[in-house]
């Protein structure tokens, strides 16, 4: 079957008409039982929706802008840790400080004592024979006093 023949067949369907009774009754129902909404109603809804959209965009912009500034002012460069307990963190930091101080004083004490030859002699060394000899010498000197 050729396309031209199909198109011709389709155009014959044009002769189908609605029932005259239906056309009359529908006309009456449509025109006399319903009313068109006034044009100004559509104008109003359209302008309202436009205004609402613009307003929402402006509000969103202001919200984002102010929110961003507020965050920047509260914590300029570092992030916030709202879930961390500040008190326990401070006490933990204090105990770490104390430990560091104690270690530092210990180090200071040891370095002071190292200048004393006797203490140096009692301090274990790497085990080379020269050091042992020196210790023996020092011990004999000590016995002599």
């Amino acid at each position: 079957m050729k396309e031209e023949h199909i198109i011709k067949q389709l155009s014959t369907l044009k002769s189908i008409e609605p029932d005259a009774g239906f056309a009359r009754s529908a006309r009456t129902t449509i025109l006399y039982r319903s009313e068109p909404m006034p044009a100004r109603f559509f104008g109003l809804t359209q302008s309202l929706s436009t205004t609402l959209s613009i307003g929402l965009v402006v509000m969103l912009f202001v919200f984002i802008a102010l929110g961003g500034v507020a965050t920047m002012l509260r914590t300029p460069l570092s992030p916030t840790f709202q879930g961390v307990d500040e008190q326990s963190l401070a006490s933990e930091a204090g105990s770490i400080n104390q430990t560091i101080d104690a270690r530092l004083s210990e180090v200071a004490y040891i370095s002071g004592e190292r200048e004393n030859k006797l203490v140096m002699a009692t301090t274990p060394s790497d085990g080379d024979s020269n050091a042992d000899k020196e210790i023996d010498l020092l011990l004999t000197q000590a016995k002599g006093y």
Partner: peptide
């Protein structure tokens, strides 16, 4: 529908 919305 068309008649009711003619204004728009």
């Amino acid at each position: 529908k068309a008649w009711e919305n003619m204004g728009g």
